[in-house]
Simulated assay, not measured.
Amino acid sequence: MSYIMSLMLFFSNIKSAEALPSLIQKGKASFYSKKFNGRKTAYGERVSALALEGAHRSLPLNTLVEVTNLDNHRSVIVRINDRGPFSKSRVIDLTHAAAQALGMVSKGVANVSLRVVGKGQALAALVPSSPFNTPDAFQPLLEPVL
């Protein structure tokens, strides 16, 4: 019984990623190929090449992450709505729009840093039937970090 209580106390002290708005991770990023466009994500949404979204193995779904390309220092805020990447050498998979904003489309892979900036709104109910024309159209839907 004391073993179970010890485990409960140990795990109760661990903070979730949502509580750590400055959590930083470094590694390699890649982006979804065109064959994934329209497929469902772990969040139940459809992958759109025009959306600023990404896949991460452990961050909670709907987390907002600032991704910075360490080679050219360009940044973009993406919403985590999928699980992955499934390549062990990568820390995040991005949509084509996010990769384009980071200037990594021609290389395919980039060295990036990730910083949690908050929690996003559920976009499934907010996205109109016509696709957004630019990735910047998603930025007003993001909640400010308080």
Rank of each mutant, 00 (worst) to 15 (best):
R57C: 06
G54P: 03
Y43H: 13
P60N: 05
P60S: 05
A51Q: 01
L61N: 03
S58P: 06
N62F: 06
Y43G: 06
T68C: 08
V67I: 06
N72Y: 12
N62D: 08
N37R: 15
R39I: 14
N37C: 13
N69R: 03
L61A: 00
L61R: 04
A55M: 05
S48W: 11
N62P: 05
A42R: 10
R46K: 13
N37D: 15
L52M: 06
E45I: 08
L64Q: 04
A49L: 15
E45K: 09
G44W: 07
T68F: 06
G54F: 00
S48L: 13
L52V: 01
S48A: 15
A49C: 15
V47Q: 07
L70P: 08
N37I: 13
L61I: 01
Y43W: 14
T41D: 03
N72D: 12
G44L: 08
L50Q: 10
V47K: 01
T68N: 08
K35N: 14
R46W: 13
G44P: 03
D71A: 10
V65P: 03
A42E: 12
G38F: 15
Y43F: 12
A55W: 01
N62R: 07
R57D: 04
L52K: 02
N69L: 04
A49Y: 09
A49T: 12
T63V: 02
L52S: 01
S58Q: 11
L61H: 02
L61T: 00
P60W: 03
V65R: 02
R39C: 12
D71L: 10
E53F: 07
L59Q: 01
R39F: 15
A51G: 04
V67A: 02
N72P: 07
L50M: 14
L52P: 00
L61G: 04
V67P: 00
V47L: 14
N72H: 13
L70Q: 14
V65S: 02
V67D: 00
N72F: 10
A51N: 00
H56T: 04
S58K: 08
